[in-house]
C-alpha cells in the first residue's frame, strides 16, 4: 500500500517568463485515490502532462511506476484522460475506442467492454461529434480504463457531467480503487475529492502547498458553544479544554477538543450558571481548508 506509483522531485516547467509548475515534490502511493486539487491555471494539468511524457520538464524529474516518466513501457501501463477527451469526430465512440485499443495492442472486445463500463454502450455507434460534453467525457474515461492499467490519471473527469453522471463517476473511481488500481484524480470539485480521495495534494500558482490525507488536511473535529454570558462561557471552556485549545469567534466559543467531551462541558457550564443556547461539533470542510490555503498564499505573495 505504501509503495510509490508516482514520485516527482523538484518538477518544474517554465514557459518563457511564466513558471507554470514550480519545484513540485509529489508522491502517489499504490492503490490510493489521490486528489490533485487546485484552482484553474494552478499547474495541475501541466504537472500531469509531465508525468505522462507529453511535455518535458524544465527541471526536476518524475518517475511513474518505478521508471522515468514518458517511457513507452510505462505509458502502456497508465490510462489517462488529460484536459478533455481528444477523439476523431468522424468515428463512432466504439470505433474511437477500437483505434485506441489497437494502439495499445488490446483485443477488439476491450473497446465494447470499456464503453459498457461508462454506460455508453447504447450510444457506441453514434459519431463522437454528436456526443454531448458529458458523453465525450465518459468516452475519455472509458479509453483510460481499457486494458485495466495500473495507474489511472483522470484530469477533471466530471466536467460536463450531470449530477447523476457525477455520482456514477465517483462510484466508478471508488470501484477502481477497491480493485487495486491507483487513481490520480485532478479536480477543482472539492466535495467530490473529499468524498472519494484518500490523500490530496493542493497546488496553487505552480507550487504544491500541501500533501496529506484528507482527514489530516481538514483537521480534527471540534466543539462550538454559544452560551451567555460569553465571558463565563469562555472561562469554563478554558478550564475544560485548556487555554490554547479555545478561541472566540464572535459569540461562539470554539474548542479544539473531541466532540465526545460535549457532556462534560455542558455540565460544567450549567454548574457555573451559564445559559447554554447551543452546543455541537464542527468539522472543517475540504473546501474551507482549500480556500484558507490558497488565499493565505495569495495574501503572502
Amino acid at each position: 500500500m505504501n509503495e510509490s506509483v508516482v514520485e516527482t522531485h523538484g518538477l518544474t516547467k517554465r514557459y518563457g517568463d511564466r513558471l507554470a509548475v514550480d519545484r513540485v515534490d509529489m508522491t502517489v502511493k499504490t492503490g490510493e485515490v489521490y486528489g490533485f486539487l487546485g484552482p484553474n491555471g494552478a499547474g495541475k494539468t501541466t504537472t500531469l502532462r509531465m508525468m505522462l511524457g507529453l511535455i518535458r520538464p524544465t527541471a526536476g524529474s518524475a518517475s511513474v511506476l518505478g521508471q522515468p516518466a514518458g517511457r513507452p513501457d510505462v505509458t502502456a501501463r497508465i490510462g489517462a484522460l488529460i484536459e478533455g477527451p481528444g477523439f476523431y469526430p468522424y468515428l463512432s465512440g466504439l470505433d474511437n475506442l477500437r483505434v485506441m485499443a489497437r494502439y495499445r495492442g488490446l483485443p477488439k472486445s476491450t473497446a465494447a467492454a470499456a464503453l459498457a463500463r461508462v454506460d455508453l454502450a447504447d450510444r457506441g455507434s453514434d459519431k463522437f461529434k454528436s456526443y454531448s460534453l458529458g458523453m465525450k467525457q465518459r468516452l475519455g474515461v472509458a479509453s483510460a480504463l481499457m486494458g485495466d492499467p495500473e495507474l489511472i490519471v483522470l484530469d477533471e473527469p466530471t466536467n460536463g457531467l450531470d449530477p447523476a453522471g457525477m455520482a456514477d463517476m465517483r462510484s466508478l473511481i471508488v470501484e477502481l480503487a477497491r480493485g487495486g488500481q491507483t487513481v490520480l484524480l485532478s479536480s477543482h470539485l472539492l466535495d467530490e475529492v473529499q468524498e472519494i480521495c484518500d490523500r490530496v495534494g493542493v497546488i496553487n500558482k505552480g507550487r504544491l502547498l500541501r500533501e496529506s490525507t484528507v482527514a489530516d488536511l481538514r483537521g480534527g473535529a471540534s466543539l462550538v458553544v454559544r452560551g451567555f454570558p460569553v465571558d463565563a462561557t469562555l472561562a469554563v471552556a478554558m478550564e475544560v479544554a485548556g487555554e490554547d485549545a479555545v478561541h472566540l469567534d464572535g459569540e461562539d466559543v470554539l474548542l479544539d477538543v473531541s466532540p465526545g467531551q460535549a457532556p462534560d462541558l455542558t455540565r460544567a457550564l450549567v454548574a457555573r450558571g451559564v445559559d447554554v443556547h447551543q452546543i455541537g461539533s464542527t468539522e472543517r470542510t475540504l473546501e474551507s481548508v482549500f480556500f484558507e490555503m490558497t488565499t493565505e498564499k495569495e495574501a503572502v505573495s
Binding site: 505522462l52 511524457g53 497508465i78 481528444g86 477523439f87 494502439y103
Partner: peptide
C-alpha cells in the same frame, strides 16, 4: 487533441 490521446496509449 487526438495526438495527445494517442501519445498516452503506450
Amino acid at each position: 487533441g487526438t495526438w495527445k490521446t494517442v501519445f498516452t496509449q503506450g
